[in-house]
Amino acid sequence: MTAVGHPRPAEAERAEPRTIEIVGGPGRISAEGLREAWEYRETLRAFVMRQIKVRYKQALVGIGWAILQPIVAAGLFAVFLGRLAGVGSEGVPYLLFALAGMVVWTFFSGSVTTGSDSLVSQQTLLRKLYFPREILPLSSLGVGFLDLVAGLSVLVITAALFGVFPALPWIVLVAPFVPLTLFAAACALALSSVNVYYRDVRYTLPFLLQIGLFASPVVYSLSVVPESWRFLYASLNPVAGAIDGVRRIVLHGEWPDFAVLGVGTAWSLLLLVAAYALFKRLERGFADRV
């Protein structure tokens, strides 16, 4: 064979092949499983790239759709809620206010929707190939990020059009997305695994997301929530915390509420561990049941 005398990583690995044990029954989170998932990170990236490439190849406007969706929704809200119903918008133009909410919401709902369907829609892969299964729901988040970046760009441009320009707090723009991403990952993992067993998830989710849209301050301000409940609400609903954070940073040039984001991160992490445990518990039956 080739490359004599060059110790290659593959060969070094082969020197001491790892032994794995495959048993049935409910699985659990293990160091071994986490390590393997980490080793397959290139595969995760491959899945993300695959979805992105396919999207660009199939749809002429590609990412255009990702941008259009929050803009159109924000526009509609601006007309019906901002103009006609006169919903308060923290002193900024309602369109901009709603766009900030929609960009965050679109990332979350898009990731959770494709994530929860990811195992069922790619069932041929589940039945023919091995790779850590969590890669599929998690890769949906990767694609969601791409849309998010596009959406945030639109938000920044729109803000500039309304005369709102970058300020120092923009350096922490990533902060609101930390709890939100963990929360979205938790939802995608839990829902995708349950969906394999009960297809009801697929039909219930749009309904739940509809409720979620109005349970989060997308079209209204967080200040609508009574002061005493605001902290709890914004940290336990990471979507609310994230939207408020983005509005503070981008629209008002203020620092986000780090206490809310911190508690939200801890809470989301807890949910993520629970969701991952559920996923692992159900994982071994995927290929049989999907």
């Binding site: 032994t19 794995i20 044990e21 495959i22 048993v23 049935g24 029954g25 589940l126 039945r127 023919k128 190939l129 091995y130 071994r284 039956g285 290929a287 049989d288």
Partner: peptide
């Protein structure tokens, strides 16, 4: 590891 056994162990 596409499927898992109902009983027993594969190494």
């Amino acid at each position: 590891r596409i499927m898992y056994p109902t009983h027993g162990k594969v190494r």
